[in-house]
Amino acid sequence: MAVCVRQSRNSIINHVKAKMGLLGLTCLSSSMPSLNNDHRTLSAASLAKDLRNQNSVLENKPILYRTRRFDSTKPHQRSGVQSNVANSQFLDFPGGKVAFTSEMRFISESPKERIPCYRVLDDDGQLIEGGINVGKEIAVKMYSDMATLQTMDTIFYDAQRQGRISFYLTTIGEEAINIASAAALTIDDFVVPQYREPGVLLWRGFTLEQFANQCFSNRGDDCRGRQMPIHYGSKKLNYLTVASTIASQLPHAVGVAYSLKMDGKDACAVTYFGDGGSSEGDFHAALNFAAVTEAPVLFICRNNGWAISTPTSDQFRSTLSFCQNMTI
């Protein structure tokens, strides 16, 4: 497959739409990418031939797009067969090892033992007995949206590195957090995001063109270019505009949830943050605010063990799992 870039915005939108899951390569005839230069497009066959040739035309030439593709886990058993997995298996989680469980339950107070990690699939991708079953239509949409999100991130990130857009952050490795949480919510639930939750918008119907309009800050952008790239927002989809300030969204989410409670709405607010955000004062104020008002708010922490370059061991005194510190 080959893609020829003519205009930044339109080419990126079309590439995401048409080349999802395929290898798209563009090679310029000059050493610097320019939209006004002549382009040379390569077919898969000619590309393979050129790669075997040390004088390949690709040598020292920039590639505009690269698509990340990861092999899916190949289960040893046939699809659909449930697997009995003992809950004694452990996950090497930041802060120590935690056990797996397939039982979903709410914990009203801090337990003495470590909080286990909930999961529905085993290491081979098989359903764990007693886990939640998801219908085929929903499962396919979840997988499709995760693949779309990953490809969109790859293309927009490359565009930012080329100077086509001024700023971009990816959600690579966090696609499932975005899509799974979005699938569990209803459109009436309000989302108060950080800046790594575009998958929630994608699930709710935000189009690839809308993402591109916002990143390019053009007149098609709902905010008319008044926000930085990736600071998405949608009143129609109940998705509050992203704020850059770390953890400032947490008290806002509690306020939204308290408003829903006062209005008697059958809805909740959900907010996202990283482990680094929990070191901010807004985090502690928000949790206390939520507890006092008994507001219907869900806090989702993306704990990967690092706040940019600061490990959780430098942020928390506790030697236990960060999840236990989060229990309210």
Score class of each variant (00 low, 15 high):
S8P: 07
I12R: 05
H15F: 03
H15S: 04
M20V: 12
L23E: 12
L35W: 10
K49A: 11
K49C: 05
N53L: 10
Q54V: 13
V57N: 11
L58C: 13
K61F: 02
P62H: 13
P62E: 07
I63A: 15
L64T: 05
R68S: 15
S72N: 09
K74T: 11
H76A: 14
R78P: 06
R78L: 08
G80R: 05
S83I: 01
F90M: 12
F90K: 13
K97I: 03
S102V: 11
S102Y: 04
E103W: 06
S108T: 09
K112N: 11
R114M: 10
C117P: 01
Y118C: 13
R119D: 02
D124P: 05
G125S: 10
G125L: 11
L127R: 10
I128Y: 08
E129K: 15
G131A: 13
I132Y: 07
G135V: 09
K136A: 11
K141I: 10
M142N: 04
M142R: 12
S144K: 06
A147W: 05
T148S: 04
F156E: 03
Q160I: 00
Q162H: 12
G163Q: 03
G163L: 06
R164W: 10
S166K: 06
S166H: 05
T171E: 04
G173T: 06
E175C: 07
A176K: 01
A183V: 13
L185C: 14
L185Y: 08
T186L: 02
I187A: 15
D189S: 09
F190V: 14
V191A: 02
V200I: 15
T207F: 12
E209T: 11
N213Q: 03
F216D: 00
S217W: 00
R219I: 04
D222Q: 07
H231V: 06
G233I: 04
G233H: 06
S234I: 08
V242H: 01
L250M: 13
L250K: 00
P251A: 10
M262F: 11
D263F: 14
K265H: 07
K265G: 00
A267D: 01
A267E: 05
D275V: 03
G277H: 07
G277N: 07
H284T: 11
A290Q: 01
P296R: 12
N303I: 01
N303V: 02
N304G: 02
S309R: 02
T310A: 02
R317L: 02
S321A: 10
F322N: 03
N325C: 14
T327H: 12
